[in-house]
Amino acid sequence: MIDGRFVVVPAAYVFLLRGTGEATQVLLQLRQNTGFMDEHWAAAAAGHVERGETAYDAARREALEEIGVTEVALEFVTAMQRTRGGEPIDERIDFFFTSRSWSGEPRILEPTKAAALRWCRLDDLPEPVVPHERAVLDAVRSGTTAAYSTFGF
Rank of each mutant, 00 (worst) to 15 (best):
M37Q: 13
M37H: 09
D38Q: 05
D38P: 00
D38I: 06
A42Q: 02
A42K: 02
A43S: 09
A44M: 05
A44H: 02
A44Q: 02
A45N: 07
A46K: 04
G47L: 06
G47D: 05
H48N: 12
H48Q: 12
V49R: 01
V49K: 00
V49G: 02
E50N: 10
E50C: 03
R51Q: 11
E53Y: 04
T54K: 05
Y56I: 14
D57I: 07
D57T: 11
D57R: 15
A58H: 03
R60M: 12
L64H: 13
L64C: 08
L64Y: 12
E65H: 11
E66M: 11
E66P: 01
E66K: 11
E66L: 09
V69C: 02
V69Y: 00
V69H: 01
T70H: 04
T70M: 08
E71H: 13
V72Y: 00
A73C: 13
F76H: 15
V77F: 06
M80H: 02
M80T: 11
M80G: 01
M80V: 09
T83L: 13
R84L: 13
R84G: 07
R84Q: 06
R84M: 10
G85R: 08
G85H: 11
G86Y: 07
G86K: 07
E87Y: 12
P88R: 02
P88M: 00
P88W: 04
D90I: 05
R92G: 10
R92D: 07
F95R: 01
F96V: 03
F97Y: 15
F97D: 01
F97V: 02
S99F: 01
S99N: 08
S101H: 11
S103G: 09
G104V: 12
E105V: 10
E105F: 03
P106C: 01
R107F: 04
I108D: 06
L109H: 04
L109N: 11
E110H: 07
P111Q: 04
T112Y: 08
T112S: 09
